[in-house]
Design a protein around this nucleic acid. Sequence first.
DNA 1: TTGTACGCGTTATCAC
DNA 2: GTGATAACGCGTACAA
Lengths: 331, 331
Amino acid sequence: MRKRATAREVADAAGVSKWTVIRAFTPGASIAEESKRKVLEAAAALNYTPNLLARSLATNSTHQVAVFVDDFANPQKLPFLETLTERLQAEGLVAVLININTHFDHVHALLHADQRQVDAVILFGTAFRSETLNDLQFGRGTPPMFVLARDSQIEGVPAVTCDAELALREIVDHLFERGYRRPGFMTGATVLSTALRRRQHFVDFWGEKGVDDVAVFSAEKYSAEAGAEAVRGYLKETDPADRVDVLMCENDILALGAMDEIRDRFGLRVPEDMAVVGFDNYELCGSSAYSLTTYEQPRDEMVEVIVGIITGRLEPETVTLPGTLVVRNST
Amino acid sequence: MRKRATAREVADAAGVSKWTVIRAFTPGASIAEESKRKVLEAAAALNYTPNLLARSLATNSTHQVAVFVDDFANPQKLPFLETLTERLQAEGLVAVLININTHFDHVHALLHADQRQVDAVILFGTAFRSETLNDLQFGRGTPPMFVLARDSQIEGVPAVTCDAELALREIVDHLFERGYRRPGFMTGATVLSTALRRRQHFVDFWGEKGVDDVAVFSAEKYSAEAGAEAVRGYLKETDPADRVDVLMCENDILALGAMDEIRDRFGLRVPEDMAVVGFDNYELCGSSAYSLTTYEQPRDEMVEVIVGIITGRLEPETVTLPGTLVVRNST
DNA sequence: TTGTACGCGTTATCAC
DNA sequence: GTGATAACGCGTACAA
């Protein structure tokens, strides 16, 4: 396992200077055909490839984008990561996946990413509390930050999101039309959920319809199990006559857990006894075992926009994109 | 958005040489208390932090690990990524997530990762065809490679996997004991599935029990939809009297798709008319809507081992770890 | 078209 | 304990 070949070695082998070697590997550089051929030959023989690390140091651009994630329970993250990495790679960028949790919080991660000289930071579905940034001299050396799939709560940090207002309006309209009148809303972790605005819009739009009483309760975290527990607590404590007739959950995972509990543990029918709505349109929502009505985020477009912003094609400003209501049998 | 401060600037501000600045940021370096204090003060004022990029160039170690992924359809990938990133970060390493697909194949990705000087490459559940490596001067500049959650098909590349032989033995024993005698197996993409060995062991162990007829068919890819389609084709073509009484699927996602089809489209009962088994123990397998019997991979241990190998604590050799059979209502 | 200085920000090593 | 020299591998000027 020898050391890598360097431009210098290739230069010696090809009988040119190392700068000529560099030119051979720089698209559009002015270099003679003959020299280029000689260089590429020698490079192939020595198995030389440019050292991107050294290049990054010299050009002050790593072509790396840090992606912060703090919630791995939502399977919806996976297809997002798929298209995100694919689009980034198509632009010559690469994603550094950073797991934010108690051992490695936002500030540490940001500092670390900064030290790594990443070109940008994407807060993917993480709730970045504004206060955590006060310790940092913001905008000073810190790489440009963007929020994906959550509202930004920080001045100067743009977000690319699904249009929550439009989404909840469509959902509430749909539910009202179907005749539901006693709505409930299950949030996930309350700190995060403020960044989604879904609950607020849900309550507001029901208000516009003259329904002011929206039952709101909260799951411990974003998981099927937590969703099941939360609905169990609600159903136990609530007199059957007072129960909601439709339960909207902040995301699909909560909704699926809730459905299990409602149907199999309490023996209620969905949607006859209680309808359920999710958010995200995770693959299994469409399965016949659930057939969950939900709202699909415009994933490809969102990724396209955030990559466009990072590469400079688009203005770095908050963008809100319309999604699609997917009506199934749970309503 | 000024440029980052450098050690040189801090040195000037603190009235020392830049090497003293470096020492102040090097744990265990010999430096006077007084100097250190002065340096740290100046550094804080200028908001200086060491440039990890330059450090990597000088030390020839980036503390970055490339993680190759080619199948984002399996939600099981997510918790794996969660613990993997967490454990890597605990060791001061960071994961670069590389999406392998037709536009960015293994060879390109490996070349790219190599140019980025990553410390190691993890092939996470990807099937690396041995031939693709022949183009490369293997072991020459290429960073150390390891396979996670798949068998390695390459000489000299260790793999960390769940013990497929033990797993399938337990599964077949369980099924035999329950009285099933007409087993079937659904593979995913056949190229990949050879790297899992599950089918082979399944067939072998039934053979040991005197059951030589195992129906085998294949889904197009690893997704619920593909699993449903595959089982639909099978059920349509097969006379009810000849049908298998238990269907094992290569992973949970295929199994869930299959269950939907079996129950809701063909009106068969699971497990009375046809039992179903998956593999991975994805969260929703435990939901009451499915209650799928499956086999849980020892995720934490697998991650622990591969991180141990990468950090040099453990020998770089293939490791096979035992998982856990999870019996539910689908058998 | 090609070669020369110099810089990117850090670390390793040695002299003081 | 501190400063200086060289090196990591490549890029940007600029001059030849």
